[in-house]
Amino acid sequence: GKAEKVVEDLDLPKGRHLIEPMPGALLMLLLLKGKLKGKIPQLKDFILSHIRFIHADTADIDLELGFLQHLAVKFEQHPVRIAVVTSSIKYEADIVLSQVFKVFREELQNTGLKGSELEELTNLFSDHNTFYDAVLTATDSSEIRLKPFRDLYSMALHKLAVPVDHFDRVIGFEDSESGNLAIRAAGIGLAVAVPFAQTAGHNLSSASYVAKYGLPEVIFKKHLFFNQ
């Protein structure tokens, strides 16, 4: 509850937070949960900032927006079940995820959405416990056999009711070596590494794909691995 005071003491740049989501996380979650259909024109500037994050000025904007619209329709019809899997204990995870969702709500205020559409999405990110279909923490495994062991991911697959013969349809995203090893150990079909500054030096050879530019690369360069 003292994050704002810590930010003030650290003299962080205006608009920065002590705990922040990785770039592209809000857009990815909106897309996967089927909430982008009909909103892409209003979100154009917000979306373009993600495209330019990986493509600079070389992207075919209309092509990218068209493909995003295609995905938006697909995911509205079939929203994705999403689990968070963390080696943090529940108390810590709740603090971090609460702060991340607070940043999401702030981000939404600057997307160009207005009125009922803005209210709908703001409410969507009011509580991480109701947004995600499952949240698995070290507390769920009594703080033993954490990543790189498969246990937390296996528990997540069970909570999401994914049949064993559908494990190959699941994608796991991790920012570390141990996380990607855990995804693979659980039998998940695709392990995507999204390293950040502190994990850029990790051995990510166990990953199916390393997204150097993070989630924007997954969305706009790999198109969420459709047809792969």
Rank of each mutant, 00 (worst) to 15 (best):
E4D: 15
K5D: 11
V6D: 00
D11T: 12
G15F: 00
R16L: 05
L18T: 03
P23W: 00
G24R: 08
G24E: 08
L26A: 04
L29E: 08
L30V: 03
L31M: 09
K33I: 11
K35C: 12
P41Q: 14
Q42P: 08
R52I: 09
I54H: 07
A56L: 14
G66M: 12
G66H: 10
L71P: 03
A72E: 01
A72L: 05
K74M: 02
H78F: 08
P79H: 10
A83Q: 02
V84Y: 11
V85R: 12
I89D: 10
F101L: 01
R105F: 00
E107A: 00
L108R: 02
Q109C: 03
N110P: 05
L113E: 08
S116L: 07
S116Y: 14
S116P: 03
E119P: 09
E119W: 09
E120C: 06
L121G: 11
L124F: 01
N129M: 04
N129P: 01
T130H: 07
F131Y: 04
Y132T: 05
A134W: 00
V135Y: 06
V135W: 04
L136P: 04
A138Y: 03
R145N: 13
K147E: 13
P148M: 13
R150F: 06
D151A: 11
S154F: 00
S154W: 02
M155G: 14
A156Q: 11
K159D: 15
A161M: 06
P163I: 06
F167Y: 15
E174L: 07
G179E: 09
A182Y: 01
I183T: 09
A185L: 07
L190G: 10
L190Q: 13
A191R: 03
A193S: 14
A193R: 02
V194C: 07
Q198C: 14
L204Q: 00
Y209A: 13
K212P: 07
Y213P: 01
K221M: 13
H223N: 11
